[in-house]
């Protein structure tokens, strides 16, 4: 009897062992968990794009469709001569720039489906936090285009999450993104006139949006000596070059948008 029992045991063990072996021989893939992002205001585009790449090829699950086979447009390779996604995103939908197109694609995928594909993509807001979505957009833009995602986009999370150290090694910053308060606090109005009042050391803030587009305003704040406005040559070099360190990205964007809006 014991001989039979042992034989039965041996058969069971061999069968179980065989199945276990088969499962070990095939490629071992572990499904990753998306890392919890907590983007503070002063993240660099590179860091944002790098975080986005991890989401894209990892836990976001994007490559399951985008990148293999024909379920969805391949984003990292050239498609039909239009270039990679960063190069083609701006011209996909008329009247929509790259950033808003990508945001719409991720949050309301059914709004525009690339011809030849089916409407199968889920709303990514159910899977990813807002800052993760923006990081992914930054990554996609970095594929052949320029990263224009900034802290103002994921405005809700500009403040460091409770429990995490605020902006690790950054300089002490006030959190306000209220532009007028910032212009006063950072001493801008000491040289630039606003609402028709103020000293004429730098160009007036009034109508600045008419003279300069937003990116040039941003450049002028970060690199004040790169260009000098006509008529202010004598004051060239007066403006401090430290605003890049003094402002968080959210604050910088707040100022830039505010100034660009002054027409």
């Amino acid at each position: 009897m014991w001989r039979t029992n042992l034989k039965v045991l041996a058969v069971a063990l061999i069968v179980i062992g065989f199945y276990t072996m088969v499962a070990h021989v095939i490629p071992q893939l572990q499904s990753e968990v998306p890392e919890a992002l907590a983007l503070t205001g002063d993240v660099t585009p590179e860091a944002l794009a790098a975080a986005g790449e991890r989401i894209y090829s990892g836990a976001g699950g994007c490559v399951a469709c985008h990148g293999l086979g024909t379920r969805a447009p391949n984003l990292v390779t050239d498609q039909g001569g239009e270039g990679t996604i960063g190069a083609r995103c701006g011209s996909r939908r008329p009247g929509m720039d790259c950033k808003s197109y990508l945001y719409e694609s991720m949050t309301n995928p059914g709004a525009f489906v690339v011809p030849g594909f089916e409407n199968i993509m889920p709303d990514m807001r159910r899977q990813l936090a807002d800052d993760q979505i923006w990081a992914t957009i930054a990554y996609l833009q970095s594929l052949g285009g320029e990263v224009t995602v900034t802290a103002s986009d994921y405005g809700t999370s500009t403040e460091a999450p409770t429990g995490a150290a605020p902006a690790a090694a950054g300089p002490a910053l006030t959190a306000t993104t209220e532009p007028l308060a910032l212009l006063r606090e950072k001493g801008c109005v000491g040289c630039h006139a606003i609402d028709g009042a103020g000293p004429p050391i730098g160009p007036s803030f009034d109508g600045m949006g008419r003279r300069l587009p937003a990116d040039q305003i941003r450049r002028a704040i970060l690199l004040p000596n790169a260009d000098t406005a006509k008529g202010y040559e004598q004051f060239a070099g007066t403006m401090p070059q430290t605003f890049g360190q003094m402002l968080s990205a959210a604050q910088l964007e707040a100022i830039v948008q505010f100034l660009a809006g002054r027409r």
Partner: peptide, 18 residues
């Protein structure tokens, strides 16, 4: 592998497509 549409060659951007 699929090539990028453009590369940066010693700081100069080169459009590979076409």
């Amino acid at each position: 592998p699929a090539p990028p549409s453009q590369i940066t060659f010693r700081g100069k951007t080169i459009q590979l497509t076409g």
